[in-house]
């Protein structure tokens, strides 16, 4: 297990840098995580991140891009615009959640 310093605190992460203790996350940390990967948070970004957090709380799984569209109401095209190239991984990283496990 590793820890890393972000937003002035110590957080637990896996080898890649994804949070492993999901309760250590809050929105100020999300801002910092976003900055780390060059994403500037806007209200549209927050919509996605807050949906991922609430969906994870209910299902115990990180929503895929498909689910973010179908249930979260954010079209896939917009997800690619907000989190370029690798939306699934980038969204989950900023939300402090594991990478989506589903194939679709």
């Amino acid at each position: 297990m590793s820890t890393t310093m972000l937003a002035g605190r110590e957080i637990h992460v896996d080898g890649e840098g994804f949070l492993t203790e999901y309760d250590e996350w809050d929105e100020s940390l999300a801002l910092e995580l976003a900055t780390q990967i060059g994403v500037e948070m806007t209200p549209e970004h927050w919509d996605v991140i807050r949906f991922l957090r609430s969906d994870f709380a209910q299902t115990g799984q990180t929503a895929t891009t498909r689910r973010v569209q179908a249930v979260g109401g954010v079209p896939v095209k917009q997800q690619f615009a907000l989190f370029p190239k690798k939306p699934g991984k980038k969204m989950s990283y900023i939300a402090g959640l594991p990478k989506p496990a589903g194939c679709v």
Partner: peptide
């Protein structure tokens, strides 16, 4: 627990 500089994917 090992503390290192920020780990970023």
């Amino acid at each position: 627990v090992e503390t290192r500089p920020a780990i970023v994917p």
